[in-house]
Amino acid sequence: MGYRLSRTDKVHAALLAVCGAVLVCAYWVAFYHSNLTLPESVLHPDKPGHDPFALVYMGFESAFPLADLLVAVAASLAAFYLIGRDAKAVLFGLIGSGALGFLALIDISFNLHHGLYALLLRDTGMQLELVINVACVAGAFWSIWRFWGHPLRRADDRAHPERAL
C-alpha cells in the first residue's frame, strides 16, 4: 500500500471502468434492444430476411458478446485493483487491454474486407462503428503502454532482483 495513486492513475481507472466495462455493456444492451448499432445495409437490406451479407454480419456480431465479457470483466478488475493500489491491476489491465485491442482489430479487419468503411458518409451505424474502432485501438494500446511501465509492475521487478540475468 506504499504506492500513491497519481492523477493519471485515477483517469486510467475511470477509463477502464467507464469505457472498458460500462460502455461495452451498454453497446451490447443497445445491440439486443435497438437498431442503433447496426449499419444501414443490414437494417434495410435489398431482400429483407434473405440478404446474405446481413446474415453474415449478424452472425459475426453475435459472436462478440462472449469475448467482450472477458474485456469488460478484466477492465473492471483492473480498475478495482488500481484503486486498491494492488499490483494485480497490471495483470488484469494487460489482459483486458490486450483482449480489447485484439477484438477491435478483428472488427476492423472484417469491416475492411467487406468494404463497410465505404458507407461512412451516408450510414450513421458505420460512423458509430468507426468511432468505436478507433477508440478501442487507441485506448487499448495506450492502456498496454501505460501498464507496461507502471510503477506497480516496476515494484514487483525490484522486489525480485534475483530474476535478473
Binding site: Y32, D68, L69, V73, S76, A79
Partner: peptide, 24 residues
C-alpha cells in the same frame, strides 16, 4: 442462450462495482 453473455457481463461489472464500493 443468446443474452446470457451480456447478462453475465453486466452482472459481473455491477458486482465488481458493489464489492469495490464496499471494500473502499
Amino acid at each position: 442462450v443468446s443474452i446470457a453473455p451480456v447478462l453475465f457481463m453486466v452482472g459481473a461489472v455491477v458486482g465488481i462495482l458493489v464489492e469495490g464500493l464496499n471494500g473502499y
